[in-house]
Design a protein around this nucleic acid. Structure first.
Lengths: 164, 164
DNA sequence: TTGGAAAGTCAACAAGGCTGACGTAAATTT
DNA sequence: AAATTTACGTCAGCCTTGTTGACTTTCCAA
């Protein structure tokens, strides 16, 4: 199945091999989102709320426009989500000190609790998959995913990766 | 970065490592779907149509309920998509001979053409990512994705993988 | 032969994308 | 100082794609 490390034969990239990769992405992404989706349903929130919460947790104090460029949605779409999170007391929004046009976003304690619940579930699945596949596989997994991103997204990812 | 192959140290599974994997999935999936999405926009179709076309191509003559279990949506949701594809002459639906309740689905020539256009784009990205990451990484990529699926999805995936 | 299960259709609703237009405050440029 | 740009919020309306509920047709088994 594996090719000669230096060789990269043509066979390796048959349409059939590529199709398997495509279907693997499809089915795996379903698993990837299913646990948080299950937790959210019945709480009045959806996947869009999860994404906002994730990245606010990841970069506390981030601005709305920064979040927009990470999530890749319109401000109207994000605003709808953000408004409910702020109204429900999961997210705090405060005017910037240096630039008062900006809004800096933080999770409240209540927001932290939900974030924890969601990410615990998602990490548990990730951890199980990593354990099952082993360290070498994980390194390859990350390499291929990174290569699959658009350059713009890869920049976002790398910036986050190094902790900003 | 990589751990001792037998060791699987605890450090390997820090929350930080897992978070990177989660974000990699998020950004990579965006890239994964972006090319077909771009092609479809302006053609009156969306991602749901793409998925239906993909799996009908993959398993010609498949029934609606088989497709349902692969896609994991309600039959009403699938039916809407299927109806437009049939009306537009991309998909042919014929009553089962053995069981007249069933509808067997095939792509028409026109459907094949669109399928080709979509999968060419998606495969091109996949091929580039595979090339960039190399054979070993690809094997790991597939292993982790498979481990991430729900058991039910993994069964679907394996059935497809072996050619059904 | 009848009653239930399976396959598919129609109707209505919700989440979460989108565009367009507009408003406001703060910052920046002229 | 005035004009422009930036960051953000909001209203209105549209589209795709998910959902549930109610219905028909067909098959099969009791």
């Amino acid at each position: 199945m594996a090719e000669t490390p230096g060789g990269e034969s043509l066979l390796f990239l048959t349409d059939e091999q590529l199709r398997k990769g495509i279907e693997a992405m499809f089915f795996a992404y379903r698993g990837f989102t299913s646990d948080p989706d299950r937790i959210l349903e019945g709480k009045d929130y959806g996947r869009a709320h999860h994404r906002a919460i994730h990245f606010i947790h990841r970069s506390p104090g981030t601005t709305v426009s920064n979040l927009l460029s990470i999530l890749g949605v319109t401000k109207q779409s994000l605003n709808r989500v953000l408004r409910t999170l702020i109204e429900d007391g999961l997210v705090r929004s405060e005017k910037g000190k240096a630039d008062a046009r900006e809004r800096h976003l933080h999770l409240t304690d209540k927001g932290q609790m939900l974030e924890r619940e969601l990410s615990d579930a998602q990490r548990a699945r990730m951890r199980a998959a990593y354990r099952a596949a082993g360290p070498v596989a994980v390194a390859g997994f990350r390499q291929v995913l990174e290569a699959m991103m658009d350059p713009e997204m890869r920049r976002q990812y790398s910036r986050l990766k190094e902790g900003g």
